[in-house]
Design a protein around this nucleic acid. Structure first.
Lengths: 132, 132
DNA sequence: GCTTGACCCTGTAGCGGCTACAGGGTGCAG
DNA sequence: CTGCACCCTGTAGCCGCTACAGGGTCAAGC
């Protein structure tokens, strides 16, 4: 029915216009038909696909992984082991990052906890950055 | 005493050669004197400064913040309020990232927990990516 | 019918923080 | 004196956008 302009699609999905065009260039979204005036004219299928991409991005999947997920999502009767593997990889990656950041947080909190609001010369934070 | 080559410095600090040169270009490390053969010749001061940069990077500080920290670290009698503020900003940033990643982890774990190793058509993971 | 202003188009360059060449020079051991 | 490890500069690529510049389109209001 209703053809959506790229701006409409951006408003509906929360994905910026520039990013939508970027996803198209990267092959995540099909090239949509154009109006007479050469405007992109999207349909509901495009909106669903973009929403899929957005949700995947929100979970931290990279664009390569998303391309793979999109391909897998279109082969309905194949087993979902590959999907599972991609999700598991992504979970592992997220957990690794959380571990790194948690260590950073602990160190930063500890530094700040020891700060006596002194001069730089006896600053605990600077002292630790200089070499524990 | 001993002048270090860039490779020596890399081995001692764990910072790759290319990254050391990059830090120099970015103004985080002073341009070291050169040997006759135009090799960089580092001293202990350079090693300390690079170690400072590395520890800051390990805590997630950006290069701009590190430049500021290095400047502050050289003004020994000034109060360390600015240092404190930079560390607090960095802590806030780290906490924001942890929160984002923790939400991602929960969603990924939940998806994976519901996976029945079925076909893609009834795959919970794909289903949720399609739109909860 | 004409202007204004919001929207759209393409193409290119920039961000951060590296990393990876290419194409050369240096220095030391065998 | 030859080989090899190391060093040099300069440039391009990575990811996922984001921000232009320089133009075209379209609908509303006068």
């Amino acid at each position: 029915m209703s053809a959506l302009s790229i701006g409409d699609l951006a408003r509906r999905t929360g994905v910026p216009v520039e990013t939508i065009r970027y996803y198209e260039r990267m092959g995540l979204l099909p090239k949509p038909p154009r109006t007479e005036g050469n405007y992109r004219a999207y349909e509901a299928t495009h909106e669903r696909r973009l929403a899929f991409v957005k949700r995947s991005r929100d979970l931290g999947f990279g664009l390569d992984a998303i391309r793979a997920l999109l391909d897998l999502a279109n082969g309905a009767d194949r087993p979902c082991g590959e999907v599972d593997a991609l999700a598991r990889d992504q979970l592992a990656e997220v957990e690794r990052k959380i571990a790194d950041l948690t260590a950073m947080r602990a160190e930063l909190q500890d530094m700040l906890g020891h700060c006596r609001n002194d001069t730089v010369a006896d600053c605990e934070i600077i002292g630790r950055l200089r070499g524990k």
